[in-house]
């Protein structure tokens, strides 16, 4: 479904150039859920932004369903096939647009016709009733906002969903609701996920395989089972797992 080969992403020009991703390569099969884990500055979100064309300073090979993409231009089929959910639900919804406006504009852009009935269905699918349709973001909680953002991403009926820390701004009880919702949607629609997170437990819960990143490079790719069994190849991964389990008194 997704192929990333030898991806380099950089910001700025030399000598002040910052290389955010160095030679990253991975493949994600159709229907798979793949995780990208790392600490801040490891380049994990940058990869998603390069895939979607939000960053154009990259080189390497990115293919979605076999079709190569270049630079920052993406065509209609790409937008239909790939969608993204952002980290901060407070920043990813336009403060002056109602839920209705957000979804109807999206559906319109995707060339859908039966907009009214689709909005109702989308809201039901993400667990928000009709009562939410005409609310503005300031009338919604963080979890509800993220549900709207997910509905927006689903509106195009994509095959590949890129999730950029979708729950890190939420309380744990709300995080559980959103993670369950995402798992349900994937099962029902056969979606492919690429999920970025700093939280190993979240990725271990959601993903089949994951790549561990550090300083812009992929340290290793492992399965979720290997993660749970603490079978890491790289020392860095072991350290990360150790630190994530909790704090040991000195």
């Amino acid at each position: 479904m997704l192929h990333v080969g030898n991806l380099d992403v950089w910001f700025g020009l030399p000598p002040a150039q910052l290389v955010a991703v160095k030679g990253a390569s991975f493949d994600v099969a159709r229907g798979e859920s793949f995780g990208l884990v790392g600490e801040s500055g490891s380049g994990k979100s940058t990869i998603l932004r390069a895939i979607t064309g939000l960053i154009d300073t990259w080189s390497g090979d990115i293919r979605v369903a076999g079709e190569a993409v270049t630079g920052s231009r993406r065509d209609r089929t790409f937008h239909k096939r790939v969608q993204m959910v952002f980290q901060d639900p407070y920043a990813s919804l336009h403060p002056r647009h109602s839920v209705d406006r957000v979804l109807s504009e999206t559906l319109h852009l995707q060339g859908m016709t039966d907009i009214d009935s689709r909005i109702t269905r989308l809201l039901e699918q993400v667990g928000l009733g009709r009562g939410f349709r005409f609310r503005y973001p300031h009338q919604l909680s963080g979890g509800q906002r993220q549900r709207v953002a997910i509905a927006r991403a689903l509106a195009a009926e994509p095959e590949l969903l890129l999730l950029d820390e979708p729950t890190s701004a939420l309380d744990v009880s709300v995080q559980a609701e959103i993670l369950n919702l995402l798992a349900d949607l994937r099962r029902e629609r056969g979606l492919t996920y690429v999920m970025v997170s700093h939280d190993l437990a979240v990725v271990g819960h959601m993903c089949d395989r994951l790549a561990v990143m550090r300083g812009g490079e992929l340290v290793e790719i492992m399965s979720a089972d290997q993660l749970r069994a603490h079978q890491a190849q790289a020392d860095y991964t072991s350290d990360l797992i150790g630190a994530s389990i909790g704090y040991e008194r000195a």
Binding site: R74, H79, F86, A91, R96, H97, L109
Partner: peptide, 24 residues
């Protein structure tokens, strides 16, 4: 992010300018 999100839906530059940036 909401501009990036709209861009990912295939919104044109003019649509972003008039529908998303102007109201703010």
């Amino acid at each position: 992010d909401f501009i990036a999100a709209a861009r990912l839906q295939g919104a044109s530059r003019w649509r972003l300018l008039i529908g998303h940036i102007w109201p703010l």
